[in-house]
Design a protein around this nucleic acid. Structure first.
Length: 229
DNA sequence: CGGTTTTGACCGGCGC
DNA sequence: GCGCCGGTCAAAACCG
């Protein structure tokens, strides 16, 4: 998509111009250890809009990671879009047809054609590149971390790494390992501020977060036990 | 041994 | 039409 490309100068400018400030996230979240979320300042909403976000996109002060981790079916995608807008640290989101019914059309410029490609078209010549039709919700945010990959509770399998233009750091491509889930994410470190990692999620998980369920299981068992008393 | 990572090749879109 | 670029595939290597 054109609206938000991590390698773009626009994004790098944001980092260079220090348009971001530290962001209060849920300190209690075990999944976000050693991560610092960043967000565009509200006064720089133009920059957010430039990155693809709606001009008046709210920039909340807290990340609702619990809602982030909730499994959202395809039917909930429309609702999830607004949900993702609420997610702090979002620096760009693609509003795509068929998902949000958004006004922002795909610009068509740029060369990123991965969005909306038909999955598993087979090997050989038909590999990859589907039509640029209906796409999936996509949003990105920045974290300040030494680790390239933030632990969001899901399991990811890396399927590619690519050097991108105007960046000394490669971009990594990950896919959710869950069988029925085809959520992808891209991870790239900002060239001009190596402490900042840009993570772009594409799609919505259709299954529970494994680590979250692991953490909740003992509590649920205890609740069941107590309810029996 | 099964799952994950690495990495070069391949493909399609876009700009010129 | 050609070259550039980003995204993906898939075989090999790696790892627990």
């Amino acid at each position: 998509m054109e609206n938000f490309r991590e390698g773009d100068d626009r994004l790098q400018l944001q980092g260079d111009d220090e348009l971001f400030h530290h962001f209060n996230y849920l300190q209690s979240s075990p999944l976000m250890e050693q991560q610092q979320l960043l967000q565009p300042q509200s006064s720089t909403c133009d920059a957010a809009a430039d990155l693809g976000g709606p001009p008046g996109m709210p920039m909340p002060g807290l990340v609702d990671w619990a809602s982030l981790l909730l499994p959202l079916g395809p039917g909930a995608a429309a609702g999830s879009t607004s949900q993702q807008q609420v997610v702090a640290g979002v620096v760009g989101e693609e509003m795509v047809s068929g998902v949000a019914g958004a006004a922002a059309p795909e610009s068509g410029a740029g060369s990123s054609s991965g969005v909306g490609r038909e999955e598993t078209k087979g090997k050989g010549s038909a590999r990859g590149r589907g039509s640029r039709k209906a796409s999936r919700p996509r949003f990105a945010f920045q974290t300040k971390s030494e680790n390239d990959v933030l632990d969001d509770g899901y399991r990811w399998r890396k399927y590619g790494q690519k050097a991108v233009k105007n960046s000394a750091f490669p971009r990594s491509y990950y896919r959710c390992t869950h069988h029925t889930c085809n959520v992808k994410k891209q991870v790239q470190r900002l060239a001009k501020d190596t402490s900042i990692v840009v993570t772009t999620y594409e799609g919505v998980h259709n299954h529970p977060c494994e680590k979250l369920m692991e953490a909740l299981n003992p509590i649920l068992r205890q609740l069941q036990f107590l309810s029996q008393l």
